[in-house]
Design a protein around this nucleic acid. Structure first.
Lengths: 216, 216
DNA sequence: ACATGTTCTGAATCCTGGTTCATTTCCTAA
DNA sequence: TTAGGAAATGAACCAGGATTCAGAACATGT
C-alpha cells in the first residue's frame, strides 16, 4: 500500500469538478447549448477533454447537472422571495418579477436554460426545475386561496400556466436573434401584471363554446 | 427532344411530395421528432430514402415544412373561431378552448409540434407559428380593449403570455411520459379561465417590489 | 529513491444517421 | 420500338462530435 487519496487530492478533485461545471455555464452563456461542445468546455475549464469524462459519465449528464445547479439557485432565490412576508398577491408579484428581472439580465444564459434545444438529459432536468418553480407558485396560489385573496381555482393548472406565461413572455424578447430590448421595465411589468390578474381576478364565467365541433 | 413533363407526371410528383409530408406527420405522431429519421419517413411514404431528397433539400427543411403545414391549419381553425361574432371575451375564450381541445385530442403530435426538441429549421418554423397564434390573440385583445371589455394593456406582451400559458398548461399533461389525463375537460377549462381572466380582469396595481436588489 | 496506485492527456476511434450518386426503372415523342 | 431524358433507388459514404485509452505525469508512504 503506497497511495491514499489525501484530503488535498480530494479537494483538487472536487475543485476540478466544480471548475468544469462552471465552464459549462460560461460556455453556454456565450455560445449556447448548440455551440457548446465538450472540447470547448474542457478548454474553458483548463483541463483536457478526457478529464471531463473522469468526472461525468457523459456530455448529457454534465450539461444536465450544470443546468440543475443554476436552476436550483434560481429556484432558491424565487422561493426566498415567496417566503417573505406580505399578502399572497404581493409575494406572487414579487416572485414573478424577480424571476423575470433576473432572466432579462442574463439574457443569453436565461434563454439557453429556459428554451434552447439541448440533449435529452438537459430537457429532463428542465422539466424538473420547471416544476420546481411551478411548485413555488402553486404554494403561493394556495396561500392566496386560503386567505380569500384569490378565487378558488386549480392551483396546479394555474401554476403551470403562470410558469408558461412567464417563460414565453420572456422567451421571444430573450432570443438571441431579437435585438436589444429597449424597455425592460415595461416588459417585466406587463408580464407581472398578466400573471397577477390571471390568478387573482374574480372568477370569470367563461362563455361556453358555441362553435360546433371543429372537424378535420 | 423526346421527353416532356406531362400533366400526369406533374401530378404524380406533387402527389409523392404530399405523401412524404403526410408521412412525416404520421411518423412524428408516432415516434416524435426524436425517433423520426428520414429512412422511416421514406418507408412510411412508400418511397426510397433518396427520393425524399429529390423533393426536399434536407431533413430540416422537410420537417419544418411538415410542421408549417400542420400549424397553419391550426392557425386557420383558431383564426376562424376568433373571427366569429360575439364579444371579444367570448371569442377569445373560444379560441383558447379550441386550441387546447384539439391539442389534447392529438396528444403525441401536439406535444411534438409545440415542445419537442427538433432540428433548428423546425424551431424556426415553430417560432413563426407561435407568433401567428399570438397574433390572433393579440387581435382579440385589441378588439376587447377597443370595446372597453378589456382594460388597457400591452396587447403584444399579453398575447405572448397567453400563448405561453396555453402551451405550458398543456405541455406537462401532453408529455409522452405523463399518464392518461383523466379530466380533460377540467384541464381545458382551467387553462381557458386562467387566460381569460389574465386579459379581462380589472387592472391590478401590482405591489411594488420591496425585496432589495437580489444579488449573486 | 522507489514501488504502487491515481489522475491527466489529447490524438485516434467510433457511431449515428443524414446525404450522395451510380445504376435501374420509367416516360415521352418520333 | 427505340432513343433521349427524368425520376427512383438504396447501399455506400461521410461529417462531426462524443467517447476512449495507452501512455505520461503525479501522489503517497516506506
Amino acid at each position: 500500500m503506497a497511495y491514499r487519496r489525501t484530503e488535498r487530492v480530494e479537494e483538487q478533485l472536487q475543485d476540478k469538478r466544480d471548475r468544469i461545471l462552471q465552464a459549462v455555464r460560461a460556455v453556454v452563456a456565450e455560445v449556447g447549448f448548440r455551440g457548446a461542445q465538450v472540447a470547448l468546455v474542457a478548454e474553458a475549464a483548463g483541463v483536457a477533454t478526457g478529464t471531463v469524462y473522469r468526472h461525468f459519465p457523459s456530455k448529457g449528464d454534465l450539461f444536465a447537472e450544470a443546468l440543475a445547479l443554476n436552476a436550483q439557485h434560481e429556484v432558491d432565490v424565487v422561493a426566498a422571495v415567496a417566503r417573505a412576508e406580505g399578502s399572497a398577491a404581493s409575494r406572487l408579484a414579487d416572485a414573478v418579477r424577480v424571476f423575470a428581472r433576473r432572466a432579462v439580465r442574463a439574457r443569453r444564459l436565461a434563454w439557453a436554460m429556459i428554451a434552447e434545444p439541448a440533449e435529452p438529459e438537459v430537457d429532463a432536468a428542465r422539466i424538473i426545475y420547471r416544476r420546481a418553480f411551478s411548485d413555488v407558485f402553486e404554494g403561493l396560489i394556495r396561500d392566496g386561496m386560503a386567505e380569500g385573496e384569490f378565487p378558488l381555482q386549480s392551483a396546479a393548472a394555474s401554476a403551470a400556466c403562470l410558469m408558461g406565461a412567464l417563460s414565453e413572455g420572456l422567451i421571444g424578447p430573450l432570443a438571441p436573434e431579437a435585438g436589444d430590448l429597449p424597455n425592460t421595465r415595461a416588459l417585466v411589468d406587463a408580464i407581472t401584471s398578466f400573471c397577477l390578474q390571471a390568478v387573482s381576478a374574480r372568477p370569470f364565467a367563461a362563455p361556453s363554446l358555441r362553435v360546433m365541433e371543429t372537424p378535420t
